[in-house]
Simulated assay, not measured.
Amino acid sequence: MTTLADTRHIVWDWNGTIFSDNHAVVAAVNSVCESYGRAPITLEEWRTIFSRPLLACYERLLGRSLAQDDWAWIDRTYHEVYRDLLPTCALADGVPEVLRQWRTAGGSQSLLSMWFHHELVPMVSEFGLDELFGRVDGLRAEIGGGPKAEHLDKHLAELGVDPRETVVIGDVVDDAEAAAHAGARCVLVTTGVMSRPALEATGAPVADSIREAVSWLRPQQQDEPSAAGNGGRSRAAG
């Protein structure tokens, strides 16, 4: 069994990891496909296509070049449909129990998502998860789609945690690339929008659930609570 010893901190991804939203993602993607005359796709097809940056991903999906104006329209169209379906989405299996167990075992954790910050923070609070995270960061831009690496650098710096003692848990290759860039480790889960072969190709361990992913970690014991733990209180920076 994979073991990532002496892990002090987990940086969680949101969409497809803690938040189960695959059906909303596929419906939103298919609204874009319909607008461009492209046949609808399934989740399995989207898993073979998805990558960041998203502009290039959608160019492959639609079979055409896209200007920035096209991308702005696609981004807006996607998110309108996705937001409409948010009430039908739920937390992933094992949430919040797994997160509470990790904290009880002495680990700290935070949330870094490429979902918009001003929408992410109230969602986390509505699900009663805010007290589990030392920090919650989302995307602070009007249009998304870029890589996660620079956001992870800033997130870890604000927390004051050592990347070498940090594991990123996410559902896409971008999470592994961001972790490698920051000097952290990563566990990928198959619950989101990328196929297992694509995840395995990163060289990161791949789990089929967040429960399995966390079972591979062993928290580093500390005499004093870390800044990232923040006494178990959430600090949603904004």
Rank of each mutant, 00 (worst) to 15 (best):
G107P: 02
T104A: 15
F116N: 06
L129K: 11
S125Q: 15
Q101W: 02
G128W: 07
F127P: 03
G138D: 06
A141F: 04
R140C: 05
G128F: 10
H117A: 08
D137T: 15
G128S: 12
W102P: 11
Q101N: 10
V121M: 01
H117Y: 10
H117T: 09
E126F: 02
G134V: 11
R135L: 14
F133L: 08
F127E: 00
R100Y: 00
R135K: 13
V124M: 10
S108L: 03
R103K: 14
T104K: 14
L111G: 04
G107H: 04
S108T: 10
P122N: 11
E119N: 12
S113Y: 01
R103Y: 01
L120P: 04
P122Q: 09
L111A: 11
D130G: 06
A141G: 03
T104S: 13
W102Q: 12
G138E: 01
G134Y: 09
E126S: 15
L139A: 13
P122T: 05
Q109N: 03
Q109D: 00
G106H: 05
R135Q: 14
L132G: 06
R103G: 13
F116P: 00
D130E: 15
H118K: 14
Q101H: 10
D137S: 15
G138Y: 03
Q101K: 12
A105E: 13
W115E: 03
R140K: 15
W102E: 07
S110I: 07
P122G: 05
T104F: 03
R135Y: 01
G128E: 06
